[in-house]
Amino acid sequence: MTPIDLDESYSLLCQTMTRLGRSEAERFLARFAVMALALMPDRGVADRVIAAAADIDRAEATRQDDAANARNACAGLE
């Protein structure tokens, strides 16, 4: 997938989800994930993609650290 192709597919995915609406978003993303898994070249890629998507704890930890830093920074200015 070239960056241009990725960009186009990303826009199509966002537009499609917008059209289906918030109430169908979860179902749409689940169906998309199943199709994407089925079309992956091998299990190794699939495992890596699942692990990357599941790394929510790390993303959440970053978010909380940032929020704490921001609170401290802003408190120091008051």
Binding site: Y10, L13, C14, Q15, T16, M17, T18, R22, A25, A52, A53, A59, T62
Partner: peptide, 16 residues
Amino acid sequence: SFAFDLMRKAVLELAV
């Protein structure tokens, strides 16, 4: 839209 917003959050988190 909510979809572009949700997907952008995912892109930015994953981009790290």
